[in-house]
């Protein structure tokens, strides 16, 4: 019963996130989606990832969205889409149909009994390459963001120097 309620909540929040007019409201609906997805993960038994998703997905990413929206500002953009909406619907139906076709055969499988190593052992021993990749991604992301956000300041400084000359 709880699973169905959470499923409906996830879909409603995600739909509202793409439907709401204001970006700030969309970011809050996205945070709600993250929180409900985290609960679904918890019910699946993935306790550690549920906590990480709740703190990163519903917390950090929402703060980033609010920060970016405050800087960039709300901007009314005409409702005209990049491609015609009927074509978009057809594309979505085809994509979702293909996805369902791939995972439909799994419907009869029961949940398997848990076996093998625990999460910590799997992460630190079995997936070392993933950890290196995550470290590199974090550094690349931080450096890229610093470079992107400081470019305006550099641009202003260079323009100021040109004016003085």
């Amino acid at each position: 019963m709880w699973h169905i309620i959470i499923l409906i909540g996830i879909l409603v929040c995600a739909f509202q996130a793409i439907r709401s007019e204001r970006l700030l409201v969309a970011a809050l609906w996205l945070a709600g989606t993250s929180a409900l997805v985290a609960i679904m993960m918890y019910l699946l038994g993935a306790y550690q990832i549920a906590v990480i998703e709740l703190s990163v997905g519903a917390g950090l990413v929402t703060v980033l969205f609010v920060f970016a929206i405050n800087i960039a500002g709300e901007e009314p953009i005409p409702a005209l889409s990049l491609i015609p909406k009927p074509l978009a619907w057809v594309s979505v139906i085809v994509a979702v149909g293909l996805l369902a076709w791939q995972i439909l055969p799994l419907f009869d499988l029961p949940l398997g009994s848990l076996q093998g190593a625990g999460f910590e052992e799997m992460l630190w021993s079995g997936r070392k390459v993933d950890l290196y990749l995550q470290t590199a991604l974090i550094f690349a992301g931080v450096l890229s963001m610093v470079a992107l956000l400081s470019e305006e300041q550099t641009h202003k400084v260079s323009t100021h120097k040109e004016d003085n000359v």
Binding site: G126, L133, I138
Partner: peptide
């Protein structure tokens, strides 16, 4: 979970969370 190897799925999901956050930041 269905394969009985939830730890493997969790470690992959952790990588996806990190990559997704970096994509959002960028």
């Amino acid at each position: 979970r269905m394969r009985g190897q939830l730890a493997l799925g969790q470690s992959m999901a952790l990588t996806v969370i990190v990559a997704d956050t970096i994509v959002a930041v960028l």
